[in-house]
């Protein structure tokens, strides 16, 4: 059992949970994710690790209400126990010194971006981060991101905070004004798709972290397959990060909706 020790409500649908998982807190690296199952009925949910505290033996996870299991998870409270939690999974981010790194995070994608921003900063890079969301309350972890960024640009769709516009607007400003050596984009598939198109135009090596559907997360089920450079890859063991210029985002977007009808039916059952 894995106890929730702290909870922070970021917005109506997004919470941060700090969970006691000492072994994972010790062994995780930026880019790694975990899979948890809240109880016997729960789905196995993949979540990227946002932060870890080796001393306290905890990891932080940012969860958005999407399906039944994630909604139930968001409603759990400090003191509650998560039945199963396994990790760290996936390949760690390749963090190295390249010069200037442009980090783009959209919505809950900001959470997995945080340890990567921290890693690149610690490796001696200049890090410019663009955070984007629909509105102000969906910009999360801003303070933590600022701690590890040389500059943070905020973009909101409705202009309620920072600049009005999409992530790509902010990113392009940076690219036009200074040399960018590498870009990392994490967020909704559409956001990553357009960020990749933008950086491709400028020939900037770009990594995107995919949030595919998974069951086991250990390379067994193949639910998370994605086409990268014309080859089928498994997000859980080959990724979650891939060369963004080679990812078939349109396929990814379709695949993310693979269980939409089943989810809808399940909701209807739950709501009655």
């Amino acid at each position: 059992m894995y106890q929730i020790v702290q909870k922070e409500q970021f917005s109506e649908k997004v919470v941060k949970l700090v969970v006691h998982a000492p072994r994972i807190a010790r062994s995780r690296k930026p880019g790694h994710f975990i899979i948890l199952r809240i109880d016997e009925q729960g789905e196995r949910i993949p979540l990227t690790i946002a932060q870890a505290d080796k001393g306290a033996g905890t990891i932080s996870l940012v969860v958005q209400k999407v399906g039944i299991s994630s909604t139930r998870l968001c409603e759990m409270n400090p003191g509650d126990q998560i039945l199963d939690l396994v990790g760290p999974l996936g390949k760690a981010t390749h963090i190295h010194k390249v010069g200037t790194v442009l980090a783009c995070g959209g919505g809950v994608g900001i959470a997995p971006l945080l340890p990567i921003v921290e890693g690149f900063k610690k490796a001696g890079n200049r890090v410019v981060t663009v955070l984007a969301a629909r509105s102000k309350d969906l910009i999360i972890l801003e303070k933590e991101i600022r701690q590890w960024s040389d500059e943070v640009i905020i973009m909101t769709d409705d202009g309620s905070y920072g600049n009005k516009g999409l992530v790509t607007t902010g990113a392009e400003q940076v690219i036009q004004r200074e040399q960018v050596d590498e870009c990392i984009a994490i967020g909704p598939a559409v956001m990553m798709k357009f960020t990749a198109l933008l950086t491709q135009k400028y020939n900037i090596p770009t990594q995107a972290s995919l949030n595919a559907i998974m069951v086991d997360g250990t390379g067994m089920c193949g639910a998370c397959r994605a086409s990268v450079g014309g080859e089928t890859k498994f997000t859980c063991i080959d990724g979650p990060e891939f060369n963004a210029h080679q990812i078939d985002f349109d396929e990814l977007i379709l695949r993310l909706g693979g269980y939409k009808n089943e989810e809808k039916e399940a909701w209807e059952r739950v709501i009655g």
Partner: peptide, 18 residues
């Protein structure tokens, strides 16, 4: 672990799984 696929066109459509 790793399930094999045939690598034929359309194999990553939804509804096709290992």
């Amino acid at each position: 672990g790793l399930p094999r696929f045939m690598n034929i066109p359309g194999e990553n459509f939804n509804g096709i799984l290992s």
